[in-house]
Design a binder for these strands. Structure first.
Length: 481
RNA sequence: GGUCUCGUCGUCUAGUGGUCUAGGACGUCUGGUUCUCAUCCAGAAAAUCGCGGGUUCGACUCCCGCCGAGAUCACCA
C-alpha cells in the first residue's frame, strides 16, 4: 500500500472562509493517520481573480489551526514548485503529449462564436456540448495564444466516490474541455490532474461541486494513462439560513477573524471536523491527535451540514475550560495576550493570571475578557441607580444600605490574611450578624466593588482585588449614597 | 431544461430488518449550586424517520414512484 498523500489546493482569490477550511482538515487528518504527507499547493492560474496577499492568509489559517504541510510554499519539497503559475512549462509539456497522441487540439474558435453555439442550444432546449461544434479539420499543433482542447471520447463511465459511493455517468456529460487557456495558463480541470499525479497524491478531496465534472477528469486520467486517485467529495457546509452553501455573501467569516475574536484553534478544528463527520460514539470534544486517530472517510456524511456558530462558541467554552483544567492556568493565560482591556497592561502578569483564574469559566470567547474584567484594573464609575434598582436592594432604605456597607467595611478591614477563605468566613459572619439574606448583602457588596452586571463569586472577586482596593471602593460607594 | 447528489428533533447527528414506545449533543424551557453572570448538576419540551406504494411475520433501515432541496452544464476554481 502506498503512503497516503493528500493536498489542500486553494486559489489565492481572497481569504479562505470557514466553509472551505474543512477541505484542508480532512486531507490533513487522513495523511497524518497514515504517517503520510499533506501538501499545500496554490492554484493561481486565474490571473484576473488573483488577490495580493491571499497566499499569506491561507498560510496563516493553516498554521493557526496546526495543519502543518509537509510540502508546499515556505517549506519546499521535492515536487515543487507549489505555485501553479510557476509550473507552466510542465503543463505545456504534458499537453503536448496529448496533442501528439491526437487527444488534444488547438482551437482558434473565438469565445463569441462559442456563446452563439451555446445560445442556439438553449433556445432549442438541447444540452450544449462543444464536441458537437468541434471544427472540422482539427489542428494538432501546440501554438501559443490558442486555447488547447481535449478531444473527448464520450462513453459510459463508472467510479467510486469515497463519500458518495458508486457513481456512473453517461457520455452526455463529457466534453472537449479547455486544457490550456489563450493566455497560456492551464485550466483547473487540467492542471490539478497533472499536479496531483506528479506529486503522488493518493486522495483527492474537494467539494461536491466537482462531482459533475468527474467524468471529464476520468477521461483525462485515462488519456494520460495515469492512475485515478481515490476521489472524495465533501458535501457543502450550509449557510445559517436558506439551503445554499455557506459563502462570503452570507457573511462567512475567515478563520483568522475567529482567531482574532478569541476562538481557540482547537475548538475550530474540533467543530469543523465534526460538522458532517462523527466516529459513531457520543464523544463531542476531540483533540487533534484524537481526530487523527479516529477519522475515517467512510463516516463522512453525504448530506450537507448547516453551520451553527452557537455550537462553535459552546465548543470554544469547553476548550477554554479543558485547557485550564488539564494544562493549567498558565497555558490558558498564554493564549489571552491580545484580549485584556488596555488598562490591564499596567498590572503584573501575576495579577492578570489571578483574574483569569476566577473568570475563565464564564468565557465563551477569549475576547470576552476585555469587558468582563475591566473593573479588576480600573475603579468602576459609581452608578448608585444600580444599587437602588437592584431587585434585592430596592426594598432597603438608604440608611439600611449605608449601615450595611459600614459594618461590612469595618469587619472586612479587620481581616489580616486577605484570602478567599478568610473572606468567606467574614462574609458568613456578616450574614449572621446583620440577619440579612445573602441576596441582599452580597448583591450590595458585589455592586459596590464592581458596578458590573456580573462578577465571579464574591469572596474570589474580593480576594483578587485585594484588601486595599476593595475597601477603597466600598468606601467610595458608601460616600455616594 | 439535461445530468448528478442529498432528505431522522429548530440545528449537528446515532441508527446497516426486530434491542427504536428513535439515542446523544447544541439551542430552548424548568429546577438546584449562599447574590449576579457563567460553569456544573438534575429534569422537560422537541423527529407519525420528506410523501405514497410495495417486499416482509416485522421497515427509519430493502425496492419502486413522487415531492422537496442542492450541485453542475465557463478560456473560474
Amino acid at each position: 500500500m502506498k503512503e497516503v498523500i493528500t493536498r489542500f489546493a486553494p486559489s489565492p482569490t481572497g481569504y479562505i472562509h470557514i466553509g472551505n477550511v474543512r477541505s484542508a482538515i480532512y486531507p490533513y487528518l487522513i495523511a497524518k493517520q497514515d504517517n503520510g504527507k499533506f501538501i499545500l499547493r496554490i492554484e493561481d492560474t486565474d490571473r484576473e481573480r488573483y488577490v495580493e496577499g491571499a497566499t499569506d492568509l491561507i498560510e496563516d489559517t493553516l498554521k493557526w489551526l496546526g495543519l502543518d504541510w509537509d510540502e508546499g510554499p515556505i517549506v519546499g519539497g521535492e515536487h515543487g514548485p507549489y505555485f501553479q503559475s510557476e509550473r507552466l512549462p510542465i503543463y505545456h509539456e504534458w499537453v503536448k503529449k496529448l496533442i501528439s497522441s491526437g487527444r488534444a487540439y488547438a482551437d482558434p474558435t473565438p469565445p463569441e462564436k462559442i456563446d452563439e453555439y451555446r445560445k442556439k442550444c438553449n433556445t432549442e432546449k438541447i444540452p450544449f456540448l462543444y464536441r458537437d461544434f468541434r471544427p472540422e479539420n482539427l489542428d494538432f499543433t501546440f501554438r501559443e495564444g490558442t486555447p488547447i482542447r481535449f478531444l473527448s471520447d464520450p462513453k459510459e463511465r463508472e467510479w467510486t466516490d469515497a463519500v458518495m459511493g458508486k457513481m456512473k455517468a453517461g457520455p452526455e456529460v463529457q466534453d472537449d474541455i479547455i486544457l490550456i487557456k489563450k493566455d497560456g495558463y492551464p485550466t483547473y480541470n487540467f492542471a490539478h490532474i497533472i499536479d496531483d499525479a506528479l506529486m503522488g497524491v493518493t486522495h483527492v478531496m474537494r467539494g461536491v461541486e466537482y462531482l459533475s465534472s468527474t467524468p471529464n477528469y476520468l477521461a483525462l486520467y485515462e488519456a494520460f494513462g495515469l492512475d485515478t486517485p481515490t476521489l472524495v467529495s465533501l458535501p457543502h457546509i450550509l449557510a445559517p439560513t436558506g439551503n445554499k452553501k455557506l459563502g462570503k455573501r452570507d457573511g462567512a467569516k475567515s478563520a483568522t477573524e475567529y482567531r482574532d475574536d478569541g476562538v481557540l484553534p482547537e475548538a475550530m478544528l474540533n467543530y469543523l471536523a465534526c460538522l458532517g463527520w462523527n466516529d459513531g460514539t457520543e464523544q463531542e470534544i476531540y483533540t487533534k491527535e484524537e481526530l487523527i486517530e479516529r477519522f475515517s472517510l467512510d463516516r463522512i456524511q453525504s448530506s450537507g451540514a448547516r453551520y451553527d456558530e452557537t455550537k462553535l462558541l459552546w465548543m470554544n467554552g469547553q476548550w477554554i475550560r479543558k485547557i485550564f483544567d488539564e494544562q493549567g492556568a498558565r497555558a490558558l493565560y498564554d493564549r489571552t495576550t491580545n484580549f485584556w482591556p488596555k488598562v490591564a497592561s499596567d498590572y503584573s502578569e501575576e495579577y492578570r493570571l489571578s483574574v483569569l483564574s476566577i473568570v475563565y469559566d464564564r468565557l465563551k470567547v477569549l475576547s470576552d475578557l476585555t469587558e468582563m474584567t475591566e473593573y479588576f484594573f480600573k475603579d468602576p464609575e459609581i452608578d448608585t441607580d444600580m444599587i437602588k434598582n437592584n431587585k434585592f436592594l430596592k426594598k432597603l432604605s438608604e440608611t439600611d444600605l449605608e449601615s450595611l456597607l459600614k459594618i461590612s467595611i469595618s469587619k472586612l478591614s479587620d481581616i489580616e490574611d486577605w484570602n478567599p477563605d478568610t473572606l468567606q468566613e467574614t462574609l458568613n459572619w456578616l450574614l449572621a450578624e446583620t440577619g440579612r439574606k445573602p441576596a441582599e448583602l452580597f448583591s450590595l457588596i458585589r455592586i459596590a466593588i464592581s458596578f458590573a452586571p456580573f462578577s465571579p463569586a464574591l469572596n474570589l472577586t474580593l480576594g483578587a482585588l485585594g484588601k486595599e482596593v476593595s475597601l477603597a471602593r466600598l468606601n467610595a460607594a458608601a460616600r455616594s449614597l
